[in-house]
Amino acid sequence: MIRVALPVHLRTLARVSGDVTLDIDGPVTQRSVLDALEARYPMLRGTIRDHVTHKRRAFIRFFACEQDLSNESPDAPLPDAVAKGAEPYLIVGAMAGG
């Protein structure tokens, strides 16, 4: 079970509260997690990755275990702690409120 933490505006869009949990068959990578997330919550398509290229949008970043994975290969395995659900996969979005 993978835990995914979404920015608050995407939680609102997906109508979820707290972390999202996903079951992934096969290798746990950023691509497989995001594919599973978008399959479960189709309304998130285009908000995290570009609709067409599937590249990370420039106002979103990905983190896990305190490390910035935003520019890592989407097919690289995520840390064991994320794959085992001990640590969340963080999707962090720009916010501007003050």
Binding site: A58, F59, R61, G93, A96, G97
Partner: peptide, 24 residues
């Protein structure tokens, strides 16, 4: 950190979505 801003309307402002008064 954020090379580009989100498109207008995608990320609500506090004026649109509210904010807990203690948070700031």
């Amino acid at each position: 950190l954020f090379a580009e801003p989100p498109p207008p309307g995608m990320v609500p402002s506090c004026a649109e979505g509210g904010v807990l008064g203690i948070l700031p």
